[in-house]
Design a protein around this nucleic acid. Structure first.
Lengths: 165, 165
DNA sequence: CCCGTTTCTCTCGATGTCAAGAGACTCGAC
DNA sequence: GTCGAGTCTCTTGACATCGAGAGAAACGGG
């Protein structure tokens, strides 16, 4: 089956026959698939009244384990947004009752963000929904193919995740 | 070599041992790799004084072939942004002298956006730089592995690209 | 022809993000 | 102790995007 990247590559070969555009076969597909996934996730989360960014923050806290609390700084590094953005996000999540701000008992500059019970349940439900949807997308592939794909992708992501920042 | 997704998956298995999180092994890697690629591309384009969105628009015109012109509407569908955004983008590219607006001779409601010579050269140079960088990222894999990866990704993207919109 | 519908592009207001910096507090050297 | 550098969170202003809708022109049935 043909996809958009096949058409993209064909267009480049026509317009720039001097260039080797083979890298696009892999990396343009990665980018485009990621975009499709973003849209699909937005839909899946909407069923739980969550935005993707809310899911990101809530699950970071959820993965931390009890008592489900992290500093805003720790949340920054996990979600890769800036501090101004995180302040805004915590404000909105707190207003919705999904997290609460607590003073950090060991550092009076600091704050701890803790998941409320409601927040934990919402995160758990949204994760279950996400996994269900992702399983449907991956049904195109056999178990062996999925493992193969995961392994090849790991080879590409590992340098980014380990060497720099 | 371990990557962030391995750590992510391990955290979920600890916190939610009841869930099968195998889909994350593939799809979280796709999303994270796409994010790394975005950052890398931003850097590569900066050497040519281009933003990623500028590259998107210029190369859409470039791929169209001579005379390198498309309507704003055609650019919308290729770049997947809204019309308000495209108007803004064309304004800024025109101000930089990379594209120009022409009245559409066959439809007085319409406009044609045409790549200037400067714009075409910038697009060509930026594409060459991008491909060079992408080749470096893909050097982790053998030619056969790249072909395998492209094929598996195509199986996942094809349903999105063909069935819906 | 004429009028309603559709198809274009652009305008406008709201929103989320980033980058830079301010303010509060901690920590270590002296 | 005290001072300066470092750390942490929040504030502010700029900016790109989206979504809804306005205005202009094309299209097509009666």
């Amino acid at each position: 089956m043909e996809d958009e990247v096949d058409r993209l590559v064909a267009a480049w070969r026509r317009e720039r026959p001097d260039l080797d555009v083979e890298p696009l076969e892999v990396l343009s597909r990665v980018s485009r698939l990621a975009r499709h996934l973003d849209r699909a996730r937005r839909l899946a989360f909407a069923e739980h009244q969550l935005e993707p960014w809310e899911f990101d923050v809530l699950t970071a806290l959820r993965r931390a384990g009890t008592p489900y609390q992290l500093s805003p700084g720790q949340l920054l590094t996990q979600t890769l947004v800036t501090s101004g953005t995180m302040t805004n996000r915590i404000d909105r999540l707190a207003k919705k009752g999904l997290v609460e701000r607590l003073p950090d008992p060991s550092d009076r500059r600091g704050v701890l963000v803790r998941l409320t019970d409601v927040g934990r349940d919402r995160a758990d439900q949204a994760l279950a929904g996400l996994l269900e949807q992702e399983r449907a997308i991956l049904a195109e592939l056999s178990r062996a193919q999925r493992a193969e794909l995961a392994g090849l992708l790991r080879q590409l992501t590992a340098p980014f995740d380990n060497i720099p920042g």
